[in-house]
Amino acid sequence: MRLISHPVLCNYYVTYRCNARCGFCDIWERPSPYIDLPTAEKNFTDLKKLGVKVIDFTGGEPLLHREIDKLLGLAKEFGFITTLTSNCLLYPKWAERLKGKVDMLHFSLDSPVKEEHDLSRGVACYDFLVESIAKAISLGEKPDILFTVFETNVHQIEEVYNKFCKPNGLVLILNPVFKYNEVDTGEKLSNLTLQQLKRWSKKPGIYLNEAFIQLRKDGGNHISNPVCKAGSSTIVISPENELVLPCYHLGIKSLPIKDNLYHLYNSAEVQKLISLEGKYPQCEGCTINCYMQPSFAVELNKYWWKALPGTIKYNLMKGTWKQLF
């Protein structure tokens, strides 16, 4: 049963450019412009009309955008919940200008071991992460530590939790790795690893969407009965100011917005593409967290119930639950 008929999230790619070279990501390989403020403002107006609650300013590395603070501030003026994930290379430079403008600020971490984290990111990020945590805390900010879980680093959750999160009162987000396109993301997560993740999710200060675990146990999205609602729950805007459908990772169609996002989204062409969400051949077995999370929020099914406890827990920890209603 559908609970919410309008999109709830916008993944706004401010640029595809990145100053890291993560082996499990290919976004940084794409050429890219940067979005401009006047265009973003027009899109914010239409996103509001479409019912979007949350804007995730993403990339690439979003802090490469020279007006990211202004974009975030404008989004807050519109009443959106804002999220941003950074590799931390530029956060110390931006920290004071970003203060109070990001509701859900995530710092990426792949290993508590400096050499391993830097190797994973393709550049020396670790020291900047440590500096960024200290800087954020000094400003009264509470960044989350976003730990992408691979089969090879699941044993490091405890060290990350005890070293970075527990002493600083920071939320640890466990983000199970997902496969897409031809990107090498390592071994499939084993049932033992999934069980470990579920146990960790019960601890204070740790967030994991348990529906991610259930979906992997079920073999991912199935085109015969899709759980994915990427097109109808999420609006994806590219740095070229195009509406990307049905999701960024599949990218079947990109349509120029031309200052007319509201009417474009409601057009017959877009609605037809949306009606096929989760049903494309490439959608079989998909577990991409970016689109499954909002998918779980808009339709009442077993995944909605699995996601509910973690969603409530996280929004209570972050103080954003009132803004969701």
Rank of each mutant, 00 (worst) to 15 (best):
I4E: 06
I4K: 14
H6V: 10
P7I: 03
V8M: 11
L9F: 13
L9Y: 12
C10T: 10
N11V: 11
N11C: 10
T15W: 02
Y16G: 00
Y16C: 02
G23K: 11
C25V: 00
D26M: 13
Y34S: 03
L37T: 13
P38L: 08
P38D: 06
N43S: 04
F44D: 02
D46Q: 07
K53V: 09
V54F: 14
F57D: 01
T58R: 13
G59M: 09
E61A: 01
I68K: 10
D69C: 09
D69I: 11
K76G: 07
E77G: 03
G79F: 11
G79I: 11
A95N: 03
G100L: 04
G100C: 01
G100Y: 03
K101P: 00
D103N: 14
L105G: 00
S108F: 11
S111P: 07
P112K: 09
P112D: 05
K114D: 08
H117T: 10
S120R: 15
A124N: 14
A124P: 07
C125Y: 05
F128Y: 15
F128P: 00
L129W: 06
L129M: 14
K135S: 00
I137W: 02
L139M: 04
L139C: 00
G140L: 01
K142A: 02
V149A: 09
E158T: 14
K163M: 11
C165S: 01
L172W: 01
P176R: 07
F178S: 11
F178M: 01
K179F: 10
T185Y: 11
G186P: 11
L192W: 12
L192H: 14
T193P: 02
L197C: 08
L197E: 01
W200K: 09
K202V: 03
K203Q: 12
L208T: 13
L208K: 12
N209G: 04
R216V: 04
G219E: 03
G220Q: 03
N221P: 07
N221S: 04
H222C: 04
H222W: 03
V227H: 12
V227G: 05
A230W: 00
V236I: 13
I237H: 02
P239S: 02
N241E: 12
E242V: 06
E242T: 13
L243R: 04
L245H: 01
C247T: 05
L250F: 14
I252N: 10
S254V: 09
P256L: 04
K258S: 12
D259C: 03
Y262L: 14
H263F: 07
L264Q: 01
V270L: 09
P281V: 06
C283P: 05
E284F: 06
C290R: 00
M292H: 12
P294S: 10
Y303N: 06
W305E: 10
L308M: 15
L308I: 10
I312V: 15
K313F: 09
M317R: 06
K318L: 06
W321V: 15
K322S: 09
Q323M: 15
Q323W: 13
L324E: 03
